[in-house]
Amino acid sequence: MLIRRPGLKESQVTDHRAYLNRRLFLAAGAASLLPGPALALNLAGYQKGEAPAGEKPTPLEAVTTYNNFYEFGTDKDEPARNAPGRLKVRPWEVVVEGECAKPGRLALDDIVKPHRLEERIYRMRCVEGWSMVIPWLGVPLGAVLARFEPTLKAKYVHFTTLADPEQMPGIRSRVLDWPYVEGLRLDEAMHPLTLLAVGLYGAELPAQNGAPLRLVVPWKYGFKSIKSIVAIRFTETQPRSSWMKANPREYGFYSNVNPAVDHPRWSQATERRIGEFRRRDTLMFNGYGDQVAGLYAGMDLKANF
């Protein structure tokens, strides 16, 4: 029975184009009503993306109701119940600081506007052993970071999520050391696959997916793709991420998807694609090895997990 009915709901069989048009219509309508600075991003005219060969995007319903966003609760369905309406995504500012020539405090629009929005349909592999295929909308992180002119001392990029107990009920329990922080090596951050996302399925990011601005690093486990970013800092030393602080034995800085390196408590050899019954084999670098393996040439990936 489970095989025949992979949890399809009426909302999931809505024609994709109809869904997109409806969203664009709503966004355009909202934008025209509000005077002053644009409160909605202009997503129109983005460059369409292609799904990886043989992959079909995971239904929107699943992408937006099955989330790990502990600031809104540790159960998968809690972010979708707690984040919309609570998370205030406008106005939104990002502080850029550290080893760069042009630090500053930027509004969301100022970060995104100079770049052309692109759709990127990426596999997303969670460290817990499930995966999705998600059509993100965003700008290459590298192009954005280049504008701040990182200095020669900048070796890493450190990201911080909003931590506001007023908006985020999950912060009251100290399951992690808030605020949530993550980091990339500068060359990983500048890699053309790395995306600074503002939307998915052709519309702005839903709150539970890390609105209004999040990272997407498709060859790393999902927790590296930090949500609701409020600060970007260029550093000389390797940042310690929230999960490294919580459990250094289990979570490393790199956290590249690697079926040969198990998490101490569970195997990473296989994954369950959401909507499928049988597990499938996990691919090295989540299937992006051709593009990113060079970043780690000569490195022991077991030691640098």
């Binding site: 029975m1 489970l2 009915r5 949890g7 399809l8 709901k9 319903e61 699943a62 109701t65 099955y66 998968k76 369905d77 499930w130 369950r272 959401i274 019954f277």
Partner: peptide, 13 residues
């Protein structure tokens, strides 16, 4: 829940 198709996004979990 199974009958109503209400086991969520990851029914096996």
């Amino acid at each position: 829940r199974f009958w109503l198709d209400d086991l969520g996004v990851n029914p096996i979990e």
